[in-house]
Design a protein around this nucleic acid. Sequence first.
DNA 1: CACGACAATATTGTCGACAATCTAGTTGCT
DNA 2: AGCAACTAGATTGTCGACAATATTGTCGTG
Lengths: 215, 215
Amino acid sequence: MVADARVYEELKANILRGDYSPRQRLVEAELCEEFEASRFAVRAALQSLEADGLVERQRNRGARIREISLEEAVEITEVRMVVEGLVARRAAERVTDAQAATLREIGAAMRVAVASGDVGAYGDLNVRLHQTVREIASHAKATGIIARLHGQMIRHQFAMSRLPGRSSVSVVQHEAIIDAIAARDPDAAESAMRAHIASVIEALRTIAEADVRRG
Amino acid sequence: MVADARVYEELKANILRGDYSPRQRLVEAELCEEFEASRFAVRAALQSLEADGLVERQRNRGARIREISLEEAVEITEVRMVVEGLVARRAAERVTDAQAATLREIGAAMRVAVASGDVGAYGDLNVRLHQTVREIASHAKATGIIARLHGQMIRHQFAMSRLPGRSSVSVVQHEAIIDAIAARDPDAAESAMRAHIASVIEALRTIAEADVRRG
DNA sequence: CACGACAATATTGTCGACAATCTAGTTGCT
DNA sequence: AGCAACTAGATTGTCGACAATATTGTCGTG
């Protein structure tokens, strides 16, 4: 693999894993050591990560992990709401029987995870459900935008998954999405997906209020 | 202005103006001459334009203007449909009386442009209407995504504005959008905007069919 | 004429070195 | 102690040069 692509992939993976704090400095020389690459490769990777909205660079001051405010997180989620609504709609238009069965399996596994309080498994299934819907929809542009926005939300995603009762609310919403897609009802699928993500926005606002209260 | 930012802005403006053909080579050395900048600046600009989806670069083979197929144009427009729907919804939630009056003025000017067959003026008003809606909505993320997608559509935009009867169809749709926003009806605003852009998708399909017929 | 092989030229990829800028620490003064 | 000025070190910005790769042109052969 070419050096700059490698640095980009690895550094992005590290960022998405939450290895860095918001505003943390990313010093070129350190990255060169860490990834055993030249400054050329590191700089190219940083530029790409900046284009992804994960990193901000300021002239003569280097790169930092970009901080995503809750305000921005809400806007990102609003955009995701409508774009993922489009994806759900399209999935409902295209779903095969086999794909519908897969969705149902995921839904059943979610029920199990919620009942047993397994937040980690639930999170994985959540990711898997959304991914499956996107695969069924097969809409490259929408998928690309969702991926990009998702990367910017990683920090808030974690906070939300830890919200008490979050998974018992969302499992019902996930099931509504699955039902609508399996029923090949585009309008219902879009509505269900939007309602689900609207509740994510509410959850974000809940966190925002708690933060204000906590000072 | 810093060289790479300048090259980026100018080259992007040239691309958006339609100065280049799809797949046209962008040779670094030539760009260096044209913009009187170093290769460093030119390469940085090209990388940014690649991130914008306007240019594609292939290792050891340089940069080209990225060709946007009609298929991709349709997908782009579908995403725009839902994102601009969100923007219209939000504009309806936030619009002031003064802003509503501005929208109405634009709508009236559009009527005049259509009646007099002034396609160029109509195009400008079209741009202005959408921009005004975005300003009212004041949704940074949505606006950013729309701008980025718009850049990728520039070639198809031109073909569409030349479609016979296109402006008389869209002027009615624009008025519906204006009415709904001025009435502060988010649902109606979103529906009107989506209907408008859905008809853009149909127009794209019309072009695609004509192209197939023409061979 | 068409095709393959090879050379020449064009172009891109990348490096090390140096210049420019910023930040942190030290010193001197009030 | 607080502040300003200065210095040293850290870091980023950018260049020219060279290596690597792709493309084009030329030549020879059938």
